[in-house]
Simulated assay, not measured.
Amino acid sequence: MRRFYLVGFLVLVCFDTFAQICFKLTANHAMPPEANLAWVLRVLASPWVYCAIACYIGAFVTWMTLLEHAPIGPAFAASHLEVVSVMVLSVVLFNERIGTPQWIGSALIIAGIVCLAISETDGDPPPAPH
């Protein structure tokens, strides 16, 4: 079952990450941003917008499948790993810079996911509400 979770979350992060990268590529293709029909047509003419939509559908199906089996706490936390992966890929693909706050935030996201995963594998029942 752990292999299922590992592969499932990896697929989910890939879908979510690629969707965000595709939206960035769409935005770059549709420049300059304007509130008019010409801009909408430029967006619709970009193949990247359709890749992003396909990735969102893939992420939805993957997420629904994972929720049938995975504990909700770690599942919800792990679904936010794309924040870190998009940030790293933005440096590589778009020459964006990452500052100290972004690195700290990424470390906190990863630490939170690890803590939730460890708490789920301990086997201890959750504390009773007061």
Score class of each variant (00 low, 15 high):
1 M>K: 12
2 R>S: 09
2 R>Y: 11
4 F>I: 15
5 Y>P: 09
6 L>W: 15
6 L>E: 12
8 G>M: 04
11 V>S: 07
12 L>N: 04
13 V>T: 14
14 C>T: 14
14 C>W: 08
16 D>I: 02
18 F>N: 00
18 F>R: 00
19 A>I: 00
20 Q>K: 02
20 Q>A: 13
21 I>R: 00
23 F>D: 01
27 A>F: 05
30 A>D: 01
30 A>Y: 02
30 A>V: 03
30 A>C: 04
32 P>Q: 06
33 P>V: 13
34 E>V: 07
35 A>G: 02
35 A>F: 10
36 N>T: 02
36 N>S: 02
37 L>C: 02
37 L>Y: 04
38 A>Q: 10
39 W>S: 03
40 V>C: 08
43 V>P: 00
43 V>Y: 00
47 P>L: 13
48 W>C: 09
50 Y>H: 08
50 Y>R: 03
50 Y>I: 01
53 I>A: 14
55 C>A: 14
61 V>T: 13
62 T>A: 15
62 T>L: 01
63 W>Y: 15
66 L>K: 03
68 E>H: 11
69 H>D: 11
70 A>C: 14
70 A>F: 04
71 P>G: 05
72 I>H: 13
73 G>A: 14
74 P>F: 05
75 A>V: 09
75 A>C: 13
77 A>Y: 08
77 A>L: 12
79 S>D: 15
80 H>G: 14
81 L>Y: 06
81 L>W: 12
89 L>G: 03
89 L>I: 10
89 L>E: 08
92 V>C: 05
94 F>K: 10
98 I>Q: 14
98 I>S: 08
99 G>N: 15
101 P>C: 11
101 P>L: 08
101 P>A: 09
102 Q>I: 08
103 W>G: 04
103 W>T: 06
108 L>P: 05
108 L>F: 12
109 I>A: 10
110 I>K: 12
111 A>S: 10
112 G>Y: 11
112 G>N: 11
120 E>N: 11
121 T>L: 15
122 D>Y: 05
123 G>T: 10
124 D>C: 07
124 D>F: 06
124 D>R: 15
125 P>E: 09
127 P>E: 04
127 P>Y: 06
129 P>Y: 09
130 H>V: 08
